[in-house]
Amino acid sequence: MESAPPRVCPAQRAGSLDNRFRRLLQNPRRMLSPYVREGMTVLDIGCGPGFFTTDLADMVGDRGRVIACDIQPAMLEKLRHKVRGTALESRIVFHQCRETTTGLTEPVDFILAFYMVHEAADQTLLLRDLCTLLKPQGLLFLVEPPIHVSKTAFAETLRKAQETGLTMIAQPAVRFSKTALLQK
């Protein structure tokens, strides 16, 4: 079994990432409905076992799709198993990225990067890659955990995002998180 890079949450902890208690605290629909519409193409980078992916796939509807992207094949397999045989399966594209790039070229309307940018080996490369994928006026919702990411480190991440061509337009409230809504 392939192991995750040292900064990444291991697949063995997937259950702690996708549970009812977390859904009460960080409800995907409530958090993402202001930004995600039917027919959109959405990238869920660092999707893990799909805590946000399934709600995103429901929100984009039959005309939209969600690219579930993770560095760990085991996380993608957990998500694949979760949606197998459901209506959501046809709306989700499973993609294994590499440590330094997503490896994607398809333009997207919205990117969710939830609790994962701090895990990137090179944040500037990652943010540049994400900015390239966004359509004009596209949005990147960046959410980081306060325990792992200090105020100073988050400010540095935002500085790097601005250098890649993204502009912060809001800081939506998400429990237990530092956030930024960035636009291309």
Rank of each mutant, 00 (worst) to 15 (best):
G165Q: 09
A57T: 04
F110G: 01
M1Y: 12
D58C: 02
Q123L: 01
A57R: 09
R91V: 04
M59G: 10
E89F: 08
M168G: 11
L76S: 05
P6C: 09
N27F: 05
A57D: 06
L43D: 03
K178H: 14
V108M: 04
A57Q: 02
R175K: 07
V117A: 13
K160R: 15
L24G: 04
C9P: 04
A87S: 10
D55H: 13
T101A: 13
G165W: 00
L112R: 14
G61L: 10
A4V: 04
N19L: 10
D70T: 03
L56S: 01
T54K: 15
P73I: 05
E156K: 15
Q171N: 04
L79M: 09
T53D: 01
F176C: 09
Y35S: 12
G64N: 09
L158W: 12
E144M: 11
A153G: 01
R91Q: 07
M75E: 10
T132S: 13
L130N: 05
K135E: 09
K160G: 10
L133N: 02
E38K: 12
T41N: 03
K151Q: 14
S3W: 10
A57E: 03
L25M: 15
P145R: 07
G46Q: 05
G85W: 08
P34C: 11
V60I: 02
R22V: 06
T105G: 01
C97K: 14
V8C: 05
A74G: 03
F176A: 09
E38Y: 05
R175A: 14
V93T: 15
D122N: 15
P136D: 08
M116R: 09
E99Y: 04
T41R: 13
G85I: 02
T152S: 09
I111S: 05
L182I: 05
F52K: 04
A173T: 11
H81C: 00
L142F: 06
Q137M: 08
V60M: 03
G50M: 03
G138M: 06
Q72T: 14
E38A: 13
P49I: 03
H148D: 13
T132I: 08
F141M: 13
T132V: 12
R23T: 10
L56M: 01
V42E: 00
F94M: 15
P145K: 07
F51G: 02
R98W: 06
R20K: 12
E89L: 12
L17D: 03
L127I: 09
D122Q: 06
P10A: 03
A180Q: 12
G39W: 07
L158T: 05
